[in-house]
Amino acid sequence: MHQTLYWEDVTVGTEIPPLVKNPSNRQLVRYAGVSGDFYEIHYDKDFAISTGLNGIIIHGALKQAFLGQLITDWIGPTGTLKKLSAQYRGMDEPGSPLICKGKVVKTYVHNHLHFVDCEIWIENSKGQQFTPGSATVLLPIKPRD
């Protein structure tokens, strides 16, 4: 059972529990199907190489979906995701794990709402960080007795 994450539970530097994903060729094909992104660089190796890539690459938007899961797993159903961004600065290939990580960079109150800004990123199995991003969430505050 998910324990409610309250705004008071986090502070600058708080680490988000890492999320490990194992993207496979099969997952890329499945993601192509549900997202409607059928660009061949994500499942046809010969085609990918013909465009100048080394092989098939993971959809940027799938990596962003992994970062979305990192945040929504952490905040649970009582938190609200307000902003999610990711940059795709390098190619990640399927077949080895990706570790999604993040930490809190700012906590603040605006219009009586309690916000948390986070820095998020993905590390591939070579330790490369090609997918930096950020997220802003709204968290509940602890009930007063």
Binding site: G36, Y39, T51, G60, A61, Q64, K83, L84, S85, Y88
Partner: peptide, 27 residues
């Protein structure tokens, strides 16, 4: 959810290959 081909880009836009550089969502 895809939108129609972007009107702002010319018909003969000569760059066929594309890569996704990043995405920012606000909810």
């Amino acid at each position: 959810i895809r939108t129609e081909r972007l009107q702002e880009l010319p018909e003969d836009f000569p760059y066929n290959r594309s890569l996704d550089g990043g995405s920012q969502w606000e909810y």
